[in-house]
Amino acid sequence: MTSGSATKRARAEITAHAAADQAANKSATRRRRIVRWSIGGVATIAAVAVGTAALLSAAPEESAATRTAPGFTLPASDGSTVSLSDYQGEPVLLYFNEGAGCDACILQMAAIEDDPGYADAGIKVLPIVMNTADQINSDRERLEVDAPFLLDDGTVSDAYGTLGTGMHEGLPGHGFVLIDADGNQVWQGDYPSMWIEPAELLKIVTQEL
């Protein structure tokens, strides 16, 4: 092996190790943020207004009613366009949330991204918010979430019955809708506490498929 080849190989190995370290550090940082929020987040949100206390302590609401999932096409915060039909033949988990200004909502997506079980199960998670790209990207980038968010004007959130299920009447709450590989909505869960552990959520949805 020539000295030039050896140098290139060494540089490639250093670059690969650096990329792996950067990814590990990013994941660790997100986990620390999630832990900090999960410890004090509910109390912080409840302190914003006394009236939210009952909502935040409410039990999750789940439904196993089955119907054909309403189709949609939405712009995404990365400039692309996403249709539900793009995922025909594979299960999809829609994540409706309050979006910009709700760190708990963004950190929920970060925690889901850090759980490899969703990819292993072949489940695509699509976060949906009623924001502009600039609004959600600011929070998404700050909290280091990779997935683009789908930008709804309220039509899709309304079609899936998620409006007013959280703290704001005109916004979706913190909830999930599971669509199976045949395009049927087979489960819906709303979480007023603004959090569900990704492993617990994955267990629920895999049992419903």
Results as ranks from 00 to 15, higher is better:
1 M>R: 12
2 T>Q: 09
4 G>S: 14
5 S>E: 13
8 K>D: 13
10 A>C: 12
11 R>E: 14
11 R>T: 08
15 T>G: 12
16 A>C: 08
16 A>V: 13
18 A>P: 12
20 A>N: 14
21 D>N: 15
22 Q>N: 14
23 A>Q: 15
23 A>V: 15
23 A>I: 13
25 N>L: 15
26 K>I: 11
28 A>V: 12
29 T>R: 15
29 T>E: 15
30 R>E: 09
33 R>I: 04
34 I>N: 11
35 V>L: 13
35 V>T: 15
42 V>F: 12
43 A>P: 10
45 I>G: 08
45 I>H: 12
46 A>I: 13
49 A>M: 12
51 G>V: 09
52 T>Q: 14
53 A>C: 10
54 A>H: 13
55 L>C: 04
56 L>D: 05
57 S>V: 10
59 A>E: 10
59 A>K: 08
62 E>P: 08
62 E>Q: 11
63 S>Q: 02
66 T>F: 09
68 T>S: 11
70 P>T: 01
75 P>T: 01
75 P>F: 07
77 S>W: 06
77 S>A: 00
80 S>T: 11
80 S>P: 02
82 V>Y: 02
83 S>F: 03
84 L>W: 04
85 S>L: 10
87 Y>E: 06
89 G>W: 08
94 L>I: 08
96 F>H: 00
97 N>M: 04
97 N>I: 04
98 E>D: 05
100 A>K: 00
100 A>C: 03
100 A>I: 00
102 C>Y: 07
102 C>M: 08
103 D>F: 10
104 A>E: 05
107 L>D: 01
107 L>N: 03
107 L>F: 01
107 L>C: 05
109 M>Q: 06
110 A>L: 08
111 A>E: 03
113 E>V: 01
114 D>N: 11
114 D>R: 07
115 D>R: 04
117 G>A: 08
118 Y>K: 10
118 Y>W: 15
118 Y>M: 11
122 G>H: 09
122 G>V: 06
124 K>N: 11
125 V>R: 07
127 P>A: 07
128 I>F: 03
129 V>K: 05
130 M>D: 08
130 M>Y: 02
132 T>Q: 00
133 A>I: 03
141 E>A: 01
142 R>K: 05
143 L>Q: 03
145 V>P: 11
145 V>E: 07
148 P>M: 03
149 F>C: 02
150 L>I: 00
151 L>V: 04
152 D>E: 04
154 G>Q: 02
155 T>G: 06
156 V>H: 00
158 D>L: 07
159 A>I: 06
159 A>C: 06
160 Y>F: 06
161 G>E: 05
162 T>G: 01
162 T>C: 10
162 T>W: 02
164 G>N: 00
164 G>T: 00
165 T>I: 00
165 T>W: 03
166 G>H: 02
167 M>G: 09
167 M>E: 11
167 M>V: 01
168 H>C: 02
172 P>K: 03
173 G>R: 03
175 G>T: 04
176 F>V: 06
179 I>A: 03
179 I>V: 01
184 N>D: 10
188 Q>D: 09
188 Q>N: 08
190 D>K: 11
192 P>Q: 09
192 P>L: 06
194 M>C: 08
194 M>H: 09
195 W>P: 05
195 W>I: 09
197 E>D: 13
198 P>L: 02
199 A>F: 06
201 L>I: 07
202 L>M: 05
203 K>G: 15
205 V>E: 05
209 L>V: 01
209 L>Q: 12
